[in-house]
Design a protein around this nucleic acid. Structure first.
Lengths: 93, 93
DNA sequence: AATATTTATCGTATATTTGCGATAAACTAT
DNA sequence: ATAGTTTATCGCAAATATACGATAAATATT
């Protein structure tokens, strides 16, 4: 496993390193996609906090958002999700 | 996936969220086990920093150390490693 | 144009993480 | 007992993460 992949794995792992973000991802992968507001209704945290977690997940490449005015629909970034799956799978073998 | 598992996954992920710790784990799983000093020789960080990373990995349950005076031999905690493998596998499916 | 809805960003406070050198602790060997 | 080896812990500084309320931005509707 090369350095590049190790760094990528660490970046994915860091994004997964908070329960709320794991829950968000779980919810997204279950219900295919959803809006920020849906998550705000579900989780007992402030809207700005959800937004911040979404930003981090987006920066890590695990989700993507498409504008659907005035809402924004977030979905799993399937390409990177698969990349993460492969990396973790190889690493934890 | 229950809350317990989500929290466990997040804890594992957090421990994996730093390149040095990923490298340490990779090295441990390759060479079965090694001493703190071996890692200090390999990585360009201070001994106290390595020790701190090892502590975190131990707290997360991913490694275990057995005293081998005056050294300490660290190994992968296979039971929890398997647990992590299953959790990530299920989650990233 | 004015209002309503939805989400991101800003500013702030607090907590945690990271990294280091210095020191202590544990144990061996002399 | 003394000295040497190895590792953990302490104290500190800097950076990053977390969470919130308030506000701004974007867009649709009236």
């Amino acid at each position: 496993m090369e350095t590049k992949n190790i760094e990528q794995l660490a970046r994915f792992a860091k994004a997964l390193g908070h329960p709320t973000r794991v829950e968000i991802l779980k919810h997204l992968s279950n219900s295919s996609c959803c809006f920020t507001g849906d998550l705000v209704d579900i989780f007992p945290v402030a809207q700005s906090t959800i937004s911040q977690h979404l930003k981090e997940l987006k920066n890590a490449g695990l989700i993507q958002g498409e504008v659907n005015p005035p809402k924004i629909k977030y979905c799993i970034n399937k390409e990177n999700w698969e990349k993460a799956r492969l990396l973790f799978n190889e690493f934890l073998k």
